[in-house]
């Protein structure tokens, strides 16, 4: 089903965050929140969703911010666009995985409309910014009738399309922690053509020291119902030098830890095979000079 005409819904335009939260509480479960609209409107046109209410954030321009706070990290308001990741001077240097995810994200037009928060809230296993944020670690700030609460990104995605956000909560901010001087990160994705949704994406964050990797976070997308942390695979990396042999073990471990499916973008077999290849390449890139060739 597809139409040139949007389905009928009531449009809510709260003038403040608290009014938005009130509306969410009032129409629990019947509201779609509209920020960039790059997914939500398309889904309405193809009738994948038919919300009774659409709550738009168009009046809440105080959520447009993207601030880097030294010592604390990156604060991303709910209306900040993916394109802002490319414009914010600190992102490329301090959060390369996130920068790289924005750089290849969709098209310039979509980057100018889509929000970083929308990518996280969509809870798609293919979300590029989501993949990077899971590796970098971070928190989602949710505002509900009883005030704010912080949910760790590791706990935020429950299943495909489902998050820890309650129906009466508005996601207002993303927080990405400040990297240390030894933090390295990188992101890479595979697509059918350049402008596409990922068929596989990978992000890593390491704390590197002389002997290799002190701690590691690995996230992979399109290999499960949500972006996945590969915790078993991470353990292999910790405290040992990055060698060819280790990378082979890491690739094998990753292939075991994921649960890909086939869809119109790729096959289960391919995703499993290539996950290890892409992961080792991303690790090599992130590790940089710490890589020990044998």
């Amino acid at each position: 089903m597809s139409s040139r005409i949007l389905p009928q819904f009531a449009l809510l335009t709260p003038q403040s965050i608290s009014e938005a939260v009130d509306m969410l509480a009032q129409y629990q479960g019947q509201v779609s929140v509209l920020a960039g609209g790059t997914d939500l409107l398309v889904w309405n046109y193809i009738r994948k969703v038919k919300p009774t209410y659409v709550l738009r954030l168009s009046a809440l321009d105080d959520l447009d911010y993207m601030n880097y706070i030294p010592g604390e990290g990156l604060r991303i308001g709910a209306r900040a666009k993916v394109a802002q990741l490319l414009e914010q001077p600190e992102v490329a240097g301090k959060f390369p995985a996130l920068y790289e995810s924005a750089l290849t994200f969709a098209t310039p037009q979509i980057r100018n409309m889509a929000t970083v928060m929308g990518n996280v809230l969509r809870a798609s296993p293919a979300g590029d910014c989501s993949c990077a944020i899971l590796a970098l670690g971070g928190q989602v700030v949710l505002q509900g009738p009883d005030g704010q609460r912080l949910v760790d990104i590791d706990d935020f995605w429950i299943s495909y399309g489902v998050t820890a956000r309650k129906n009466d909560e508005l996601a207002v901010e993303l927080r990405i922690p400040e990297p240390t001087s030894i933090t390295r990160s990188a992101f890479y994705r595979l697509t059918r053509v350049h402008e596409d949704l990922a068929k596989l994406n990978v992000a890593v964050r390491f704390e590197m020291c002389q002997n290799g990797c002190r701690s590691a976070r690995i996230s992979m997308g399109c290999v499960g119902p949500t972006p996945l942390r590969l915790k078993q695979t991470e353990k292999l990396l910790e405290g040992v030098p990055v060698t060819d042999e280790l990378l082979q073990q890491v690739a094998a471990a990753a292939r075991k830890e994921i649960a890909p499916i086939a869809d119109q973008r790729s096959t289960e077999e391919y995703r499993r095979q290539v996950s290890g290849v892409i992961l080792t390449r991303v690790i090599e890139r992130a590790a940089g000079t710490h890589r020990i060739a044998i």
Binding site: S2, V42, R192, V193, H194, Q264
Partner: peptide
């Protein structure tokens, strides 16, 4: 795949 989301043509960069 009845749309440009799912049916992929080469883009300018490709």
């Amino acid at each position: 795949n009845n749309s440009f989301t799912d049916y992929k043509l080469f883009g300018p960069v490709d």
